[in-house]
Every structure is written in structure tokens, then in C-alpha cells.
Design a protein around this nucleic acid. Structure first.
Length: 572
RNA sequence: AGGGGAGUCGCCAAGUGGUAAGGCAUCGGAUUUUGAUUCCGACAUUCGCAGGUUCGAUCCCUGCCUCCCCUGCCA
């Protein structure tokens, strides 16, 4: 991808400073540390581009690290989906693929050290009792009666925890810091708990697992991460991050400088829900067809939707990085996708809501070819033939019996203000002839079944004098005898309101029209489209051949995003 | 309420003592065989509020207001 300079942000400033002072000898090493307990979503894209982008721009490295410290929630399916999503975005971690679970031995050794140094103890309170002693936001906590256990007793207990002698929840290893700290995270946080659960990576080898707060700083230190970037909600955790690494540095486990945690504001998008819990609900309650449903804000869904890695890159550069809570309008993301697709997508014709257009003065059985460029702004991309004949498909909305003011598509002859009959409107059949509307046929219900017109033989696009016909309207069409039909899915935003869940349960805010399936008519060239090939269907938007449902010779298309449409925006 | 953060144009976002970048959106206008694209132009005397320091404040100081996060053996 071309590389526009990424705008300045506070993290880059910080890194520049570290480089200037030589803190890390110019080294920049980041990491993207997802927990494999769900699919990656748009918010992760921000983090991925941030972390991998920094590594790219500073000639550093970014590690892909699975933060798999909770075996009850993590699965191999999720690690696979994460690997494929990060790759899809275009990033490569080289040899730097890690698992927190790879470090369980080191983490355990650190814990034993902490116990020996008097920095950790085994607490045997129940979860409820611990909660009671923790105090509240305004009141200090109280020491656990087990806080004064000797190092020897703690060590013995901890080893027996590891050996599997105890049931889940009976003991927990805690850091010994300060139960009266105004920062609740420093009130002797739990760092190891007993979980008799099989781990996707380590199997049954462990029955005690480290907590995120304890594990993460150690992971960073082991991997020599220089800048550990995470979201704002971990800000209160930073003092513990630093406390832990300082203790461990004292114990000779790590050398200074120690990695530093830097927090940025997570992505909030209107009309979208990004919390893992809600995404899981949507999938499990079948409001969507799985994690990769094109309506899902997951990267797997985005891919099927036709969103592009380059579009995401544009988006993340455009929204920037800061510590201010912000809401980005979904239209910003959509516009980024349009901008990227506009440059690359070949143009094709598709009639999504077909109605017949019959050219009364065109010989029956006659046919010819019209030529259409693949990209009007890029002639080097070539052109393809569009068969033309007497009976065409046009878009139902490109004809109306009673045109609203400013409508410049097809409408029949009508009386003007002076009572004089005026001819029907003229439009150009894009890349073909100019036609004049003669009228229409309707069925018993009054529904238009065919539109009639006459064409002007000397108006064919590209022929000498064709430009003499000045028309405002330009509509797309397909020869009925040559078009092929296909399923096309018109996707719209999954939620109907900007802030789902703000006024009521978020599920009540689901958009009932988030997917409309139509039987469309497509130009012949489209029949050969392969999965993930994207096109602009002229005057409609960008579409992609569905990754999973497209079969050879039988594409199924998903609408990625519509074209900007100032006419319907102003006319309902 | 204790602690931690944030408040700069409709939405993002730089700047952090020398007199408000940029992007998106919007609005004009031009080009256009996609009511698309592209192009050109306009768009904060003002930086949450009130005081103070200073020749000079978005930036420093004081007070206030608003919003977000923290009381999992989740991450």
C-alpha cells in the first residue's frame, strides 16, 4: 500500500522522546496481545494498525501474542481466526508468535520469588470474603487474616496449589501491597488462581493460572517489549504493572529499562456494538449468521462484506489516536472503504430491481455490442462488451409516471402547464443509445411491467455525433436475453440507532432491514467472478463476490457499501 | 464520594508561553455518459467555565463544571 505519513500522536511523540534519549538504544518493540476468546473486531483493527504500524515505521517489531491465561474461555478456533484476521490486514510477525502460556514456567518461578521476598502470600478467604475486606471506592480495605503467613507456609501452600491438592476457589495467591491504597488495584490483587481446567495449549499440565494483571507485565518483559500499548481502562493498572516489574527486576528476573504501559482510547463507532459479550450474544442467539456474517463488526465479517485492509488503514490513520473518549460515525469507515474501492474496483452493470424496457423502434432479433470501460478514470484497465438488444432490463426506480421536481430519468409524455402535450423524457442508456420514453404497460394491479421507448440510431456512444444529444439522465441497462440472474445481498447497518442500547436493550435496536436479498440481473462478464473479487456496480455501490457462497460460474454478491447518493438523500 | 483519565469547529485531531495544523462532514462553484468520482473555493478573533500570573495564555497557577474508567479468583 502507498504510505501517507501517519499523523503525529502522543504515542509517537513518546517514542520519539525515547529514541532521542536513547532509552532503548533506538529499539521499538510492540505487541498485539488478544485473548483468544472471541473474534477480532473493528476496534482491534485500530490496535493492530497502531502496534504493527509503529513497528513498521520505526523499523521495529510487533509480536502477535495470545494472552491465554484463562483456559475456561479460550479456544483454538479463536486463535485461528485471529491469526487469519491479522494476516488479512497485511501484517507479518515473522518469528514473533507467542503465547502467554509459553511463559507459565517463568511466571511460576517469579511467583515463588515474590513469596520468598515477602511480596506475595496465599490467601484462603472465599471470593465473597475477599470482596468484603477489599473496602469500597471511599473506604480502605482490611488485611486478610492470612496476610501474615510465613514465607515458608506460603511457599508450601502455593506448591500444593500447583500440585493440584486443592479445589478451585479455595486458595489464591495475592500480591502483598497495600490494602488501604486509594487505588483499588493495589489492594493486594490476586495473581494466581486455581482452575482445574484443560488449557488449549498446555492441556492438563497446570491447574493454577496467572491473572492477566500479573501475567501481562511479565510477558512484556520476557519479550523485551519497549512500549506496551493498551486501552484506557487499564490505566489504573499501570502502578501495579510497574510495581511488579520493579520487584522482579530486584529479583534479577529482568533488566532495566523495564517496558512501559501506554494507554489510548478504544474505538467507539456509531450504529455498531463492539463489546465481546454483545458480539457473542449476537452469534449465539442467531441474530446474525455467525461470526463472519457480513453485518458483524468483526474482521471476518468485514472481509466477507468486502471491506478492505487498505480501507481500514485509511480509517485508522484518519481517526487518529488519543486519550479522549470519542465516537466515530460509521459513515467515516464507510467513506474510507468507498475511497479505497473507488480507486481499484472495476465497473460492472447490475440491475437490482429489474423492469423491462422495450425499444419499440429497434428491430426484433437484432443485436449489437456496446463497449464500456472497466474504469472510466483508468482507461489502461481496459473495457468489455455489453450486448444490446430490443428488450432490456432497467432499474424500476429509473422510471416513474409522475416525476418529482428535478427527476431526470424516464417518464412518459405529459401535458405541460399550457396544456400542450410534451414528449416523454430522454435519457442515455449508458454506453449505448439515447432513448425517449413513450409510456408503459401495467398489470391488473397497476404495477408497471414494461416501459416503452424509442431510440435514436445516430446517438450510440462513441459514434460520431453521438454527443449532439444532450441529456441529463444516464441510466444503466442490460440486454434481457444476455443477462444472468444471481443472488445479491444488500446489507445495511446492523443497528438502527447511533447508540445501540442507550435507550433500551441493545437487541431492541437491531435494524430489521440490515439484509435484503434480491434476485438481480447481472452483465455477462460478472458470471465468471471469483470469490472476494470486488466491483463497483455502476450507480449502486461496491459489491464483492461472497467468500463462502460463491461457486464457479455462480457468484453471490454482497453489497459492501452504497455509492454516495445526494439525490435520494434529498428526496427521501 | 476515594483514585485514575479526558474536555481544541458538526465528527476526529495537531499544537502546549508568541498570537489556532490537518482530515472527515458541510456549503458554494467547475468538470463529468455513474445524481458517483475528480477539481477549486469557503469553513474556530477562538481552545469546558471563572479568576490569576505574564508584555503576551489553548498552553502556567487556583477554583469550578461535565464526561469516562476502577470495588472479577475476567481481560
Amino acid at each position: 500500500m502507498s504510505t501517507p505519513a501517519t499523523p503525529a500522536n502522543f504515542i509517537r511523540n513518546l517514542i520519539d522522546e525515547d529514541i532521542a534519549t536513547g532509552k532503548w538504544g533506538g529499539r521499538v518493540e510492540t505487541r498485539f496481545p488478544p485473548e483468544p476468546n472471541g473474534y477480532l473486531h473493528y476496534g482491534h483493527a485500530k490496535s493492530i494498525f497502531l502496534n504493527f504500524g509503529l513497528a513498521r515505521d520505526y523499523d521495529g517489531a510487533c509480536h502477535l501474542r495470545f494472552d491465554d491465561t484463562n483456559p475456561e474461555k479460550e479456544e483454538q478456533e479463536y486463535v485461528d481466526s485471529i491469526v487469519s484476521a491479522v494476516r488479512w490486514l497485511g501484517f507479518d510477525w515473522g518469528a514473533h508468535l507467542y503465547y502467554a502460556s509459553d511463559y507459565f514456567d517463568t511466571m511460576y518461578a517469579c511467583a515463588e520469588y515474590l513469596i520468598g521476598a515477602g511480596h506475595a502470600y496465599v490467601d484462603s478467604l472465599s471470593a465473597e470474603e475477599m470482596r468484603e475486606l477489599r473496602g469500597t471506592l471511599t473506604e480502605p480495605g482490611k488485611d486478610s487474616p492470612y496476610r501474615t503467613r510465613s514465607a515458608a507456609e506460603n511457599l508450601d501452600l502455593f506448591r500444593r496449589m500447583k500440585a493440584g491438592e486443592f479445589d478451585d476457589g479455595t486458595h489464591v495467591l495475592r500480591a502483598k501491597i497495600d490494602m488501604a491504597s486509594p487505588n483499588i488495584n493495589l489492594r493486594d490483587p490476586a495473581i494466581y488462581r486455581i482452575k482445574h481446567a484443560a488449557h488449549h495449549n498446555t492441556g492438563d499440565r497446570w491447574c493454577i493460572y496467572p491473572m492477566y494483571t500479573y501475567a501481562h507485565p511479565i510477558e512484556d518483559a520476557i519479550e523485551n517489549i519497549t512500549h506496551s500499548i493498551c486501552t484506557l481502562e487499564f490505566e489504573d493498572q499501570r502502578p501495579f504493572y510497574d510495581w511488579l516489574l520493579e520487584r522482579l527486576a530486584e529479583g534479577g528476573f529482568f533488566k532495566r529499562p523495564l517496558p512501559q504501559q501506554i494507554e489510548f482510547a478504544r474505538l467507539n463507532l456509531t450504529y455498531v456494538v463492539l463489546s465481546k459479550r454483545k458480539l457473542i450474544d449476537l452469534v449465539e442467539q442467531k441474530h446474525v449468521d455467525g461470526w463472519d456474517d457480513p453485518r458483524m463488526p468483526t474482521l471476518a465479517g468485514a472481509r466477507r462484506r468486502g471491506f478492505t485492509p487498505q480501507g481500514f488503514r485509511l480509517f485508522t490513520d484518519r481517526i487518529g489516536v488519543s486519550k479522549a473518549d470519542s465516537w466515530i460515525d460509521l459513515s467515516v469507515l464507510e467513506e474510507c472503504m468507498r475511497e479505497d474501492l473507488n480507486k481499484r474496483a472495476h465497473r460492472r452493470i447490475a440491475v437490482l430491481d429489474p423492469v423491462k424496457l422495450i425499444i419499440d423502434n429497434y428491430a426484433e432479433g437484432h443485436g449489437e455490442e456496446c463497449w464500456a470501460p472497466n474504469h472510466p478514470q483508468k482507461p489502461e484497465l481496459g473495457k468489455r462488451a455489453l450486448p444490446f438488444s430490443r428488450e432490456l432490463w432497467i432499474e424500476r426506480e429509473d422510471f416513474t409516471e409522475v416525476p418529482p421536481k428535478g427527476y431526470f430519468r424516464l417518464f412518459p409524455p405529459r401535458l405541460d402547464a399550457a396544456g400542450i402535450m410534451q414528449p416523454g423524457n430522454r435519457v442515455r442508456l449508458r454506453y449505448g443509445y439515447v432513448v425517449e420514453c413513450l409510456g408503459c404497460d401495467k398489470d391488473a394491479d397497476g404495477k408497471v411491467v414494461a416501459v416503452h421507448c424509442r431510440y435514436f440510431p445516430d446517438s450510440k456512444s462513441g459514434s460520431a455525433g453521438a454527443d449532439a444529444y444532450k441529456v441529463k439522465g444516464n441510466i444503466h441497462w442490460l440486454s434481457a436475453a444476455h443477462a444472468c440472474s444471481a443472488e445479491v445481498r444488500l446489507y445495511d447497518r446492523l443497528f438502527a440507532v447511533p447508540y445501540p442500547g442507550r435507550e433500551r436493550d441493545y437487541l431492541a435496536d437491531l435494524n430489521p432491514h440490515s439484509r435484503t436479498v434480491v434476485a438481480a440481473q447481472l452483465e455477462p462478464a460478472l458470471k465468471a467472478a471469483g470469490a472476494e473479487e470486488c466491483f463497483q456496480f455502476e450507480r449502486h455501490g461496491y459489491f464483492v463476490a461472497d467468500l463462502v457462497d460463491t461457486k464457479p460460474g455462480a457468484p453471490v454478491f454482497n453489497r459492501t457499501v452504497t455509492l454516495k447518493d445526494t439525490w435520494s438523500r434529498e428526496h427521501g
